[in-house]
Write a protein that binds this DNA or RNA. Structure first.
Length: 489
RNA sequence: GCCGGUGUAGCUCAGUUGGAUAGAGCGCCUGACUGUGGAUCAGGAGGUCUCCGGUUCGACCCCGGACGCCGGCACCA
């Protein structure tokens, strides 16, 4: 006999309303178009995995962020925190899967960290991944990077932003864990400090040189008053890291030259840098210039399973927003499930984060309606005629909604169409019906006149955007009107 | 998890040293104006003042605690 259950949502989870869902679906469709053009095939895996599959694959932090789930028989389960671990499981489990296996997957993932919705961080979020598994060749890394570029270009251009900008409004930043490992040797740091050091380097953009230096040595107290633990390295060690971080490259070639110069006495450095030089040349040859893809070796990325190249994508108009698409090479992840090394490289678009970013930039395609036409019900006695018109329009391929509410008043129905921004209304009262006509309303015209017409008498006399057409020309007239208002589907 | 802030209508917020039926704007609903969005006018609904305890003749206000939310850190899509 309980009282009312308070409707509520767990922190970090979101309800998406129609306008946002339209935009999210558009983002997904756009990305899928690019991924399929690259020949990736779709894969689906369950949201729930055994806990030991998920545990210990991506570092301590991710471990703490796991949503744990109890199975019907008390099994220890968890919700996936990304798509990659499940992919590694699939590749290990189905040995007959031909390799290379190049798949895309779009699905939600869950991480129980602190949500920050203004920057698109949620506890449940949709990721759109591509990965190539069983691929040693660094051509796969190149393909992943160009796919990221093509994806971002498609999204931003179609969303109507950045048109004509040679940067495309985004930049893919590429780094390499292997080069960063050389840094450890160069600076005289123990190999097991890699995780901590990379984590700090990754913050260079956000915190700046001085704080990164402090965090590597003594730690500091930040603006909010909380203490940041230092890693306790010596001045000499940090000086060398500083030299590395001070590299300001004007191009990919320049970045490689400067790192090569700095690491000239480091064993194996030339061998690590050579493939990056080759990749850069190929990127240039394919039309991906220095403004689209940059080498920036302060990028490390947080997930522990990365072993080679890592990449992230920033929006140039929202540099503080963080990466909207990132990934890297993870040659040892499948090993956990198969005992055999299966090299792989992939990337992931943060669909929900991108949605927030596009909204912030004012270019998310937030459509409130699916319908292009609303057929109003002026007189319930004419319902059979309204039904006939509705199905006629639908069969002509026009998205059409028939008004289903109880209101008899036409004003209410027009407001309904206005609220949902349905571009065209069909009105047919007894008068029109008697004359064998229907009235079409171009809602955009009315909306525009609204700002100009102050007097109600004038408004009503003018009846902006309204005109009558013969009933038997309904589909033709609606098609023509939709083409004029730019809303043909 | 840590640091700081904050909690009053669907939303944004007022609310005097602690005083009686808790307010505004926006939004929503109803109605007026020829059978049609905006504007205008008239009316209406909507509150356990986050919760629990304490102080007091009296608490939205003061005190203690819990919880929620916002921001920063950490981490990341």
């Amino acid at each position: 006999m309980g009282g009312i259950v308070e409707p509520r949502l767990l922190r970090g989870l979101q309800d998406l309303f129609p306008a946002q869902m339209h935009a999210r679906q558009w983002i997904i469709d756009t990305i899928r178009g690019v991924y399929e053009r690259y020949g990736y095939v779709p894969l689906g895996t369950p949201a729930i995995e055994f806990l030991d599959i998920l545990s210990g694959t991506a570092g301590e932090e991710t471990q703490k962020q796991l949503f744990e789930v109890r199975g019907p028989e008390g099994e220890q389960l968890g919700l996936r925190f990304d798509q990659t671990v499940s992919l590694a499981r699939v590749v290990a489990q189905y040995a007959d899967l031909p390799r290379p296996f190049r798949r895309y997957q779009v699905a939600p993932a869950w991480r129980c960290d602190n949500p920050y919705e203004k920057r698109g961080r949620f506890r449940e979020f949709v990721q759109f991944d591509i990965d190539a598994v069983g691929v040693e060749s660094d051509v796969a890394d190149l393909e992943t990077i160009t796919a990221m570029c093509d994806t971002m270009a498609a999204l931003l251009q179609a969303a109507g932003t950045q048109a004509g900008r040679d940067t495309g409004g985004f930049r893919v930043r590429v780094s390499s864990r292997r080069v960063l490992n050389l840094l450890l040797g160069f600076a005289g740091l123990p190999p097991d400090s890699a995780h901590d050091v990379f984590r700090v380097l990754d913050k260079l953009d956000k915190l700046g040189h001085e704080r990164v230096r402090l965090e590597l040595t003594t730690g500091y107290v930040d603006d909010s008053g909380s203490r940041v633990r230092g890693l306790g390295f010596s001045g000499a060690q940090v000086d060398r890291i500083d030299q590395f971080l001070s590299i300001r490259a004007t191009s990919r070639g320049d970045a490689l030259t400067q790192v090569g110069e700095l690491f000239k006495d480091v064993l194996g450095a030339a061998a690590e840098l050579e493939p990056l030089a080759r990749m850069s040349e190929r990127l240039h040859a394919l039309g991906y210039g220095d403004e689209l893809v940059a080498y920036d070796f302060s990028i490390a990325r947080g997930l522990d399973y990365y072993t080679g190249t890592v990449f992230e994508t920033i929006l140039l108009d929202l540099p503080e927003f963080g990466s909207v698409c990132s990934g890297g090479r993870y040659d040892d992840l499948v090993m956990r499930f198969l005992g055999e090394r299966v090299p792989a490289v992939g990337t992931s678009v943060g669909v929900d984060r991108l949605l927030i970013a596009l909204t912030e930039l004012g270019c998310a395609p937030l459509r409130k309606c699916s319908a292009q036409v609303l057929v109003t019900v002026f007189d319930p006695g004419l319902m059979d005629h309204y039904l006939a018109m509705t199905y006629e329009l639908r069969r002509a391929g026009i998205n059409t909604e028939l008004y289903l509410g109880p209101e008899k008043r036409i004003g209410k129905q027009v407001r309904y169409g206005d609220h949902y921004e349905i571009p065209v209304l069909v009105v047919c009262g007894p008068d029109e019906h008697a004359r064998g006509e229907v009235q079409l309303k171009d809602m955009a015209v009315g909306r525009q006149r609204t700002a100009e017409v102050k007097d109600r008498g004038q408004w009503r006399a003018e009846r902006p955007g309204q005109f009558n057409v013969p009933r038997d020309q309904l589909v033709l007239a609606v098609t023509k009107l939709l083409a004029e208002v730019g809303n043909e589907s």
